[in-house]
């Protein structure tokens, strides 16, 4: 870890050295803010990148039935196409003889769920849901895991503030510190 840190620090110094310098090759075209906005779809754990808008667990139930249930099961558990597609259950099982890894038992950040659904789901039509639909369906999956009540409203602030049960369950290797 210490060596890795030193290497990283050296790399950052090198990078900083580049920062003020003029481009060496003059290749590439400046990206405008408008261009970046079209592709900048990632969401950070602190909520940066979450769009304006809000959704509700109640609205998410119908969206889930329409877009998600066929592969993930009617309640994100039994009926999933394969066990790896289970979304709910398993809380407290990580130390057991039969660990079950789901959004509720394993995922450290609710923001990751929003990010992944936005970029990759529904499987047959990625990036097709509106911000409101994304908040709703994200909220419903969290509700299936007992992490939000049935009458919850979901927006950027509430999603970033939600503390997932396995938030502190991950240990980065020296390469990732």
């Amino acid at each position: 870890m210490r060596i890795s840190g030193l290497v990283a620090a050296a790399a950052l110094l090198l990078a900083a050295g580049h920062a003020g310098a003029q481009p060496r090759y003059g290749l590439g075209t400046p990206a405008t803010a408008e261009q970046v906005r079209g592709w900048d779809i990632d969401v950070r754990p602190d909520g940066a990148g979450l769009p304006p808008g809000r959704g509700s667990v109640a609205a998410g139930a119908g969206l889930y039935a329409q877009h998600c249930a066929a592969c993930h099961g009617p309640a994100g558990a039994e009926g999933a196409l394969v066990p790896a597609l289970r979304l709910a259950g398993g809380q407290g099982s990580l130390r057991s003889a039969r660990p079950l890894l789901t959004v509720g038992s394993y995922w450290p950040y609710a923001t990751t769920l929003f990010d992944y659904v936005r970029r990759a789901m529904p499987f047959n039509a990625p990036q097709s849901l509106t911000a409101e639909e994304l908040y709703s369906v994200t909220g419903y999956v969290l509700h299936l895991n007992g992490l939000l009540p049935a009458d919850a409203v979901v927006d950027a602030a509430s999603l970033a503030a939600l503390r997932m049960p396995n938030r502190d369950g991950f240990r980065p290797t020296a390469e990732g510190r």
Partner: peptide
């Protein structure tokens, strides 16, 4: 590294 140098990595980018 050559491509990133064209963009200029800012200090703190880890």
């Amino acid at each position: 590294a050559d491509v990133l140098a064209e963009a200029g990595v800012k200090p703190g980018a880890a």
